[in-house]
Design a protein around this nucleic acid. Structure first.
Lengths: 94, 94
DNA sequence: CTGTATCCAGGGAGATACTG
DNA sequence: CAGTATCTCCCTGGATACAG
């Protein structure tokens, strides 16, 4: 999801850009997710045969087609009665 | 998701009904997911103080409000160009 | 009937080092 | 730069038994 959002905002991103844009994800996970999204036909991967290597990621047509679904989800998530979740205590000062 | 779908089709379900309706999920997981959905205000849990116990689950208003989002997602998932995913080989006959 | 408690194995994710 | 390889740890989820 986060990857997709970033690619909505900025339609073409290099690997390192995504890495910087989403610091909370490890390199391993980032690649894995990108591969999955690619396998699902959601993102396109473009390799430029240069030195140093350059790889660009972007949304496919199918990826862009996610827009309505994401819109609906976001609208729901931010609806007036959206409850804030409380997953456990936030560490009392010890 | 599966739980929510079932509750869309059949608005009120007992615990055991859900168990039977979704055999691939363990009891533990079912309860856990139901608790999560309850915490998120998506499903309502109604306990009848009887013997034997009887608990019914249903969608809250907020839960029903998921409809547009799910619709959009399903529409996307079944769109013409939807690629079938190939997650690994299906065991050749040994 | 509707859960909770306990134990346990397997896999997923992080960290780190390495490569074309 | 854009990944792969390897190791390890912890958490998730399954199985089972038990309880109100």
């Amino acid at each position: 999801m986060v990857i997709i959002f970033h690619l909505f905002v900025q339609p073409v991103m290099r690997f390192s850009e995504l890495e910087r844009a989403i610091p909370e994800v490890s390199q391993k996970m980032l690649i894995q997710q990108l591969r999955d999204l690619e396998a699902d036909g959601v993102v396109a991967r473009t390799v430029y045969p240069e030195v140093p290597p350059k790889v660009e990621y972007s949304l496919t047509v199918r990826g862009k087609a996610l827009c309505p679904a994401l819109d609906a989800s976001l609208k729901w998530a931010s609806s007036p009665d959206a409850p804030k979740r409380n997953d456990g205590p936030v560490l009392p000062s010890p």
